[in-house]
Design a protein around this nucleic acid. Sequence first.
DNA 1: CTGATCTACAACCATTTGGTTGTAGATTAC
DNA 2: GTAATCTACAACCAAATGGTTGTAGATCAG
Lengths: 121, 121
Amino acid sequence: MVVDQLSESEMDRVFQALADTTRRDIVHKVTLAEYSVSGLARYYAMSFAAVQKHVAVLERASLITKEKRGREQVVRANHDGLRKAQRLLDNYEAIWRQRVDRIADILDEEAPDEPQGKAIP
Amino acid sequence: MVVDQLSESEMDRVFQALADTTRRDIVHKVTLAEYSVSGLARYYAMSFAAVQKHVAVLERASLITKEKRGREQVVRANHDGLRKAQRLLDNYEAIWRQRVDRIADILDEEAPDEPQGKAIP
DNA sequence: CTGATCTACAACCATTTGGTTGTAGATTAC
DNA sequence: GTAATCTACAACCAAATGGTTGTAGATCAG
């Protein structure tokens, strides 16, 4: 059922990659269109090498792909990585909703005998 | 309606906070139940101070809240932070889908000469 | 009161991160 | 062929990260 899950270290890399404004902007750009690395670099007030590093971080996190075309390197979005990160957050959301519902139920039943469920290990 | 959005630096903090296995596990735990900081610390093979720091990172990212109760500090999930991160990824997803649809439209308009089952970028 | 527990915080350390400059190899344009 | 462009990669640096130990203040149990 839960098949295409990311490993913990893959998750680390995905969220780490998204934890930078420049990189999120790159993701946004390449989601809209294709860019070469130098094409991307023109948008940012930093060296080409810095942008190159950001692109590398995103590639390691499987959020984008690079493909050589002539002397250029075409950068594209890799939808899978994004969707998997999305899924993790969706799971948190689902768990949260379940819990809120459960607490609401308990309150409705009006049996506040014990102060709430103790910590589930 | 783009209402309750996070600033770039807030986003940085949220994703940075989620970019660590221990911290994601803490988020998961406090989504299910309440814990004291030391209660959380028992689960991890690291010092209390280290866990304390992780909790602080999550608090700065508005993913959890701390509330003093006696000598303890009760840690709870802060749903808003999570939902906002979720929203960013949802936006990427939406943009992506739009683009895929747009490309599909273009391909449909073109003469389907070749038996193209090629992957959409 | 005394001792145990929970927390806060400082100081320290190794590694990673985000940036720089510089050099060199391919590819394209003229 | 020569020059310009695009990329890769190394070396370096300051700051942030993720961990440690140690000290000290509150609060609770007996």
